[in-house]
Design a protein around this nucleic acid. Structure first.
Lengths: 153, 153
DNA sequence: TATTGTTATACTCTATAACTATA
DNA sequence: TATAGTTATAGAGTATAACAATA
């Protein structure tokens, strides 16, 4: 058995516990379940949640440096190295020297990277719609807005 | 450097990317940042987020079986074994044989467990208030409700 | 035959420190 | 002196399979 098997879980007995009001636990659970869903959805394009998010930003047009990727994704810079290494090895991104600071490396999607990115994005979107099936469009937008505000106040 | 250093992060340049609308990434980031906060808050009582959540349910009065803990916390039953082992070793919980099914083990908080639990709960509450400082009471309640509905529809 | 708890193992993710090259 | 990227390593979290006791 594994987390994935709990993806379709409905109201268990313990959900009545006051613990179910712990924001931290709600986030942990929703994230855990969502990760499994996303990773499954991304398996087709041989990506995982983390490599996907790096590719996503590399293909955003914002020309992120590795440092910015680390900060934005809440990952350590050393982890970004490994993720970019893998994407680069697969020909999905390239490292370019920073325009003004030669220490920086900008991570950019290649045409092949863009192609995989488009597929991955569609898969993740479907996965999210699935996960939030219980919420209508307005509620989903509210959730998104609240999460954003909690992060970047 | 580590995730923790991003705890106080405000509006980075990349937040404008459409990626910042990915519910999955918002959850991953908020959970990552929240985990660091919670684990720091729990360090005083020598707990981590996961052992805390097991102790929390053991002290809930709901008399959960290990199987129920696994399902509710989205963890594998084999992981629950290790977490309960540690809490039991520290004298914070005990395993009792199930009332009707002798295969089951019910996890219950001891008096000492209740004491530590009360401390831990207060620490986590403070940590959450901190993390969601940008939201007012009503917004926080809305967030809580939406997360709950997304999980147990 | 199926389920609960358990043990074991491999893999992914996270934390930390030290190094290099530029600034 | 500080910062961006890199390497290395240890610890925490996750995935999977197999087993004994009980249903």
């Amino acid at each position: 058995m594994t987390i994935g098997d709990a993806v379709g879980t409905t109201q268990p007995r313990l959900a009545q516990a006051s613990i179910a009001d712990d924001i931290g636990l709600l986030l942990a659970k929703l994230h855990a379940v969502g990760s499994v869903r996303n990773n499954r959805a991304l398996a087709d394009v041989q990506l995982r949640e983390r490599s996907y998010s790096v590719l996503r930003l590399a293909c955003s047009g914002l020309e992120p440096t590795q440092r910015e990727l680390a900060e934005f994704l809440s990952l350590d810079p050393s982890q970004i190295v490994a993720l970019v290494d893998e994407l680069e090895r697969r020909g999905l991104v390239v490292r370019e020297q920073g325009r003004t600071d030669r220490r920086q490396k900008i991570v950019l999607g290649t045409p092949e990277g863009e192609r995989i990115h488009a597929q991955a994005l569609a898969a993740v979107r479907a996965s999210e719609r699935d996960q939030l099936a219980a919420l209508d469009d307005e509620e989903e937008a509210t959730l998104r807005a609240l999460l954003r505000r909690a992060l970047w106040h």
